[in-house]
Write a protein that binds this DNA or RNA. Structure first.
Lengths: 219, 219
DNA sequence: TTGTCAAGTTAGCGGCACTTACTTATAAGT
DNA sequence: ACTTATAAGTAAGTGCCGCTAACTTGACAA
């Protein structure tokens, strides 16, 4: 195991000749191909065999690097959580940490991620039993929200439990993302502006005074 | 087409002899078997071939009744919406129509449905392209919520748009159901009481005064 | 130079969704 | 009551999938 890791490292840093070794770094190539296919077709539209074709190897090759199909997906789920966390952090930093606008921006960022990469989003939160690695990364995402909310509470002298509020926000934003993603809003309430929905509800769940709420919308 | 419908009708109402015809009513038998399998295994764990085995026919038989696998699932999705709507209506009637408790009960009923039949819930709101039939039934579900909220608003002299509030409630409850269903709460905030979560947030999204909110919890 | 072993290959298994062509049993017409 | 048209089954087969086993190849180290 450790040897495999070492070897791979060497190959990656080595000069990548025009037609290197057997493949070069099939592991990463397969992950990349899988990610592409997940984005192009849905989470069920993807097949391991497709990824192999794209990487230019036979369908037996992946099993030198992954135990099964699931293990490739897990890798993508884990990096998905990283991406989501970073994207959220960027969004909140832009609008100001510890502010309602900042927290709202985090929610909209979550929505953006879901809509941009629906298949990966579904895998991240869906039925796929996640690895402990992905588990930790998912937890990190929520922790960031909790911290943001705590920051906001301290700044505004609120005494409410930040974790509780963070869970409320997560729940709402996740619901909005799921419904938008699956086209359920479109079917049932066409024309709904989901950004506005999140912007309207975030202050309510934060327990912000209505005066703040009233001015929020034209932010 | 219409002939087939007629014929089936006759068979259903006819005396069901001990070993009727080729199968009796394979159509319904397949739907039932599919539903069972969806409940036992996940939405992906189910195979058409499994359903055939359970119904005691060959794997080619279903194609006399359904165009493809999707068409069976659509049937289940449609009846799922019926079940959800009825269950919600029962819940709200029990706690009192037009009251916060009633609306909260609807939300918890939604959650119950999702947790009790996760695979069917995922199909209903998930990636499966729904038939126009299921579309209408999904819309009906939300309409009931809108009506309940409107009822509440009239009763309490609120002027807010009932549809807007209904969408907020739907979004939150759907998010809570999804996260609970997929085990995401358990991974990230273990021990969370989702019923309480819904009961806490519902009045907030209804725009209920905080005095009402304060007394709500021990309802 | 040569031996080792990771990382490819080929070939094949069982299972799936779905199709085609054939068979059977019933309901309808005379 | 006998025939007949046809709905509703079966058998057999296609191509694709995930995955395995047994082999070959080739980079690197002794």
């Amino acid at each position: 195991m450790a040897q495999a890791e070492k070897l791979r490292e060497k190959k990656r840093t080595a000069v990548r000749s025009k037609k290197s070794f057997h493949h070069g770094d099939l592991r990463e190539a397969l992950i990349a191909a899988t990610r592409e296919l997940l984005i192009e077709h849905g989470p069920d539209g993807f097949t391991l065999a497709d990824a192999c074709r794209r990487a230019g190897v036979t369908t037996a090759a992946p099993y030198k690097h992954f135990r099964d199909k699931r293990e490739i997906l897990e890798e993508i789920v884990a990096s998905g959580f990283d991406q989501l966390r970073e994207q959220n952090a960027r969004a909140v930093a832009e609008k100001g940490s510890g502010t309602i606008d900042g927290i709202t921006a985090m929610g909209i960022s979550y929505l953006r991620f879901a809509v941009a990469q629906p298949a990966i989003f579904r895998l991240m939160f869906g039925e796929l039993k996640k690895s402990s690695k992905a588990d930790g990364k998912g937890e990190d995402c929520l922790k960031n929200v909790v911290e943001e909310v705590a920051h906001y509470c301290r700044k505004n002298g609120h005494t409410t439990d930040a974790q509780q509020i963070a869970v409320r926000l997560w729940t709402f934003v996740h619901g909005a993302s799921s419904l938008e993603l699956d086209g359920d809003y479109e079917r049932v309430v066409p024309g709904l502006d989901v950004d506005d929905l999140i912007a309207d509800v975030t202050p309510r769940l934060l327990g912000a005074p209505s005066s703040v709420r009233a001015t929020r919308k034209k932010g």
